[in-house]
Computed example of a mutant assay.
Amino acid sequence: MSRRVVCLRHGQTVWNVEHRFQGHSDIALNEVGVAQAERAASLLAALRPTMIVSSDLRRAYDTAVPLARLTNLEIFVDKDLRERGGGAWEGLTREEIKAGWPVEYEKWEAPGGEDPADVAERVAGAILRWRAKLDDGGLLVVVSHGAAIRLGIARLLGLPQELWSVLGGLGNCSWSVLEEDAKGWRLLEHNAGTLPEPVSSDDTPNG
């Protein structure tokens, strides 16, 4: 039997609205983000998840809370599901980053930040560890961050790094659905849950 994983991005924060690089900074949900988390929970609960695991950053954990409440599930916490570290860029707006590091901005490589390949490995590894705890037919909900989810998915699907950009970013409280069976991983849905809209994320310079 197959096992499915829902990768849910956290709700909106003030830094999302201000287009600031969040990275490992522990930023809370704003009022909109709290409402988004409640809405996402009401939809995802219908899928009858059997396990919830969250990044240790509170914007992700607090997004997981309404779903845990509706499903009576415990929230497990895994630091490896954190967002991509932004080094010197954390807390800065895109305009500030572009002005201070024009060359690095074009490559979206933060001084002192994490390499995308390292993020992909740790996130994919975390998903695989928790997936291994599922019974056949189980559904794991992973609550994480925009760049972390996209990179982890790309790694699980076996895409070469030069093609990782073919996967678009995720909106706040949108999700992607992966299914694993005997043939490997498939991406069933991506950035689901809302109508298409601009994505504010640490994922790209245009996020």
Rank of each mutant, 00 (worst) to 15 (best):
E74D: 15
I75N: 03
V77I: 15
K79Y: 13
L81D: 00
R84K: 11
R84M: 13
G85R: 12
A88T: 07
W89V: 04
E90N: 11
E90L: 11
E90D: 09
G91I: 11
T93F: 06
R94F: 15
E96Y: 05
E96A: 13
I97K: 02
I97H: 01
I97D: 01
A99N: 09
G100L: 09
E104L: 08
Y105P: 00
Y105D: 07
E106I: 10
E106H: 07
E109S: 14
E109T: 13
A110L: 03
P111L: 08
P111G: 02
G112C: 06
G113E: 07
E114C: 02
E114A: 03
D115I: 15
P116D: 14
P116C: 14
A117W: 12
A117Q: 14
D118N: 13
R122E: 05
R122C: 09
A124S: 09
A126V: 06
I127W: 02
L128I: 10
L128M: 11
W130H: 13
D135S: 14
G138L: 03
L139Q: 01
L140Y: 05
L140W: 05
V141T: 03
V143C: 01
H145L: 04
A148G: 06
A148Q: 04
R150Q: 15
I153R: 04
I153V: 15
L156S: 02
L157P: 00
L159M: 15
P160Q: 05
E162V: 09
L167Q: 07
G169T: 11
G169K: 07
G169Q: 11
G169H: 08
V177T: 08
A182C: 12
K183C: 11
K183V: 13
K183I: 12
R186Y: 02
L187E: 01
L187W: 00
L188C: 03
E189Q: 14
H190G: 06
